[in-house]
Design a protein around this nucleic acid. Structure first.
Lengths: 210, 210
DNA sequence: CCGATAGGTGAACATCGTTCAGCGACTTGG
DNA sequence: CCAAGTCGCTGAACGATGTTCACCTATCGG
């Protein structure tokens, strides 16, 4: 904790504190690995500022925590996309995407919890269902689902949206299971998701599958 | 809140308070629908007893909450088994099982959260990985997986344990997704899980599937 | 230099989980 | 029948939390 006192910002630069708070909270979260350790007082002390100052930039603690985690959301999308880049086959792509997603979740369990496993009420208004569905990550997943359908290999009549949700449910199930029960003797992400993904995609195939 | 004063128990009947506390906590949980509303003080007041009295029967709050939710674990198993009862085909059984599980989770979201979506540290020592794997519910799932394999219809080389985990991951994914994002426009449990289950089980089939 | 205002604080409130010394009614041994 | 013991329970407090509100004060335009 760098409890150094922070010098007051110049006029018009009050917003600088906001980023400092975000950075400190993010640092505390990754270093402690526990959301409950990221307390308003701890963050304020780390920035070198008094607790009430946090409320000049965030309406409440939940919003602060969520904003911290949401910064990882873009990184998640990038990780997924770079994993899928260069793969031609839509089936290879969806597998690589899911694996990257699951790995990301397992490597950032606290963030994943906040983003995807929290009570809906805790999510601030800025991250409702709409924002999730309109996110680049979901758009990419949707596109991949459409590509799968476009191969003509899938069972006829499937729509991209339900297929995307189905795929998401599977990868989310593997990820959250690994996060919540790490000592269960579960196989590593690659195996657990790999098998589930293979079986699910194979089950999506149509009757004329080779 | 029935803040009635509770008369002191007779000698040797101190344990009666334990059940009263459990009942009160359970009632508060279902009535408020929010774990955070189930506070030690609220439970104690509801029973008509002072807060420290709770600690005569529970080491800490997490254990109390968990014990409350664990009471539903047996009910979960019963719900699953009664759903699967009478079904001969192992594929029908696994589908009915999963659906009953998912329905149960969606209908008791707070309990499901505590049991399956919490941080592993929050779970008391009485509900470690071992207890989960040795539970009747998991045994039944494992048996069903074995039955699936015994049909000879599945892809060769599959073992019951990984298959069970895979199935659990899928149904858990659907359940927790519906719990965490109820306003996402997700299809109802029956549809979301139904499709995922059908596709997964079909993907588990071997090459000589009709 | 002056007053307005952006930037930040001190102290407090309500609430939480938890601890600890101790009270008091009831049982029991003599 | 009385004294001692102990079981069941409590009052008061500690430390920590999120949050609010009145207030201060350094800075900047005029």
């Amino acid at each position: 904790m760098s409890t150094r006192a922070r010098s007051r910002s110049r006029r018009g630069e009050g917003g600088l504190l906001r980023q400092d708070i975000l950075d400190a909270a993010a640092r505390l979260l990754v270093e402690s690995g526990d959301v409950e350790k990221v307390t308003i007082r701890a963050v304020a002390a780390d920035v070198g500022v008094s607790p009430p100052s946090v409320y000049l930039h965030f309406p409440d603690k939940d919003t602060l925590i969520f904003d911290v985690c949401q910064q990882l959301f873009a990184a998640l999308d990038q990780a997924i996309e770079s994993a899928a880049a260069g793969l031609e086959d839509p089936f290879d792509r969806i597998r690589a995407r899911g694996l990257a997603y699951a790995r990301f979740g397992v490597e950032h369990p606290e963030h994943y919890r906040v983003l995807f496993m929290q009570k809906p009420e805790s999510a601030p208004k800025g991250f409702g269902p709409e924002q999730l569905m309109e996110s680049a990550a979901f758009a990419h997943l949707l596109q991949n689902a459409a590509d799968l359908i476009a191969t003509g290999l899938l069972e006829p009549g499937l729509e991209p949206f339900p297929v995307a949700l189905e795929l998401w449910a599977v990868v989310h199930g593997c990820t959250s299971l690994l996060i919540s029960h790490p000592n269960l003797g579960l196989p590593p992400v690659e195996v657990l998701f790999g098998q589930a993904c293979d079986h699910l995609t194979r089950g999506l195939l149509g009757p004329d599958s080779t």
